[in-house]
Computed example of a mutant assay.
Amino acid sequence: MTALARRRLGRGGVEVTELSFGGAGIGNLYAPISDARAATALDHAWNAGIRYFDTAPHYGLGLSERRLGEALRGRDRSSYVLSTKVGRLLEPVGEVSGDDLADGGFAVPVTHRRVWDFSADGVRRSLEASLRRLGTDRVDVVFLHDPDHHEEAAFREGYPALEKLRSEGVVGAIGAGMNQAEMLTRFVRDTDVDAVLCAGRYTLLDHGALPELLPAAEERGVSVVIGGVFNSGLLAAPEPGARFDYTEAPPGLLRRAQRLRALAERHGTTLRAAALAFPFGHPAVAGVLVGIREPNQVLDAAREFAADVPACFWREARAEGLLPAGAPVPGGTGEARP
């Protein structure tokens, strides 16, 4: 088994492995996978040393939480970190029909409907339901999930509810998880969150978190977990038809990703290794979260995470305008990990 380094979330006591398992894929994101394949993927993650697992009720209408809970059952609860999210309650529908692909992007039967709820009562009800699906008595981290169109409710009711849960010792760390950097910056500046989960906004292709979110997090002692380091797949395999932010990548971004891939190969590394390493250039980053659905993806992520990305790659990427001049690179000299 590989040992992965751990980093603390904020000023609290929760520590996560630098490489973590994102649970959307095992919730049948885009296409179904079997229970057996999901379980094998999670076993591979455990054997690779991953000890931080993230999920949400949204992922497959609870399927991701159920599968994750089943895979972790029987393992030493003190040896891993588990996070889930609040903000969407799952309410049973009268009649099961169709699938969730059009509305949620998950290949599961529509057994429930999602109801936005960032109230204090909604936060507690959501967490209680998640614990039942996970089959555990506690989670370590809870994030407010995608409060983009519910900003005031999230700050007025949702966040104070999480702060109360933390003060009661129900959870160890709290934060918010979003696909944008602007509101996460407000959480960092105006609340006492331990961490934020920023998906897709600090990658080789998108540096939206660099001007404000990351400096604010560093100043306040808040940790940032970076999700979506492959930008929905474009930085994993930049071929025509690849996704960027859940839809087909525009031609200009595809060409940029292909240039980065060619540059990586010239320097004896891979685009995937560079994408996984890049966020660690900033001291506020505690880890990267990789969405995984297949066993082979775990093996690939672990191998690429451990690969060296030479200093010459970062220097040339800057020289060619593929990285902003002000973007810090891992180690400051191009090392694979600070």
Results as ranks from 00 to 15, higher is better:
194 D>W: 13
268 G>M: 11
214 L>A: 06
253 L>M: 09
179 N>R: 09
200 G>N: 07
172 G>A: 02
264 A>L: 13
215 P>Y: 10
266 R>E: 03
283 P>G: 06
170 V>D: 04
199 A>G: 01
219 E>M: 10
300 D>G: 01
202 Y>R: 00
286 A>R: 10
217 A>L: 14
263 L>F: 05
172 G>I: 01
193 V>P: 02
235 L>I: 10
212 E>N: 12
269 T>W: 14
230 F>G: 06
252 G>N: 05
270 T>K: 11
310 P>D: 09
189 R>W: 10
241 G>I: 14
267 H>L: 08
260 L>V: 02
196 V>E: 04
310 P>G: 06
179 N>T: 07
240 P>Y: 15
236 A>I: 05
298 V>G: 04
230 F>I: 11
247 T>P: 01
252 G>S: 08
287 G>I: 07
169 G>T: 07
279 P>A: 11
196 V>T: 02
247 T>C: 05
232 S>T: 11
290 V>I: 12
188 V>Y: 08
222 V>E: 14
218 E>D: 11
184 L>N: 03
208 G>Q: 10
229 V>Q: 12
256 R>H: 03
310 P>A: 13
303 R>G: 02
305 F>P: 00
237 A>W: 15
213 L>M: 10
183 M>K: 03
266 R>K: 14
234 L>A: 08
265 E>R: 15
284 A>W: 07
251 P>S: 06
299 L>W: 09
265 E>L: 12
265 E>C: 05
206 D>N: 12
220 R>I: 11
182 E>A: 12
306 A>N: 14
294 E>S: 06
191 T>N: 06
214 L>M: 09
242 A>M: 08
179 N>P: 09
258 Q>V: 00
258 Q>T: 02
306 A>R: 15
289 L>N: 04
293 R>F: 05
224 V>G: 10
175 G>T: 04
209 A>I: 05
227 G>Q: 08
256 R>M: 03
176 A>K: 01
189 R>C: 08
232 S>E: 14
207 H>N: 01
222 V>Q: 12
220 R>F: 12
248 E>M: 01
175 G>R: 01
280 F>N: 05
245 D>E: 15
265 E>Y: 14
169 G>C: 08
216 A>H: 06
204 L>N: 01
269 T>C: 14
304 E>F: 14
293 R>P: 03
238 P>E: 13
231 N>A: 14
282 H>M: 10
218 E>W: 15
169 G>N: 11
206 D>C: 00
245 D>H: 12
274 A>G: 10
221 G>T: 13
216 A>C: 13
256 R>Y: 05
235 L>N: 02
279 P>W: 08
198 C>F: 02
301 A>H: 07
294 E>F: 08
266 R>T: 00
176 A>R: 02
192 D>F: 05
246 Y>T: 02
308 D>V: 04
214 L>P: 01
272 R>D: 06
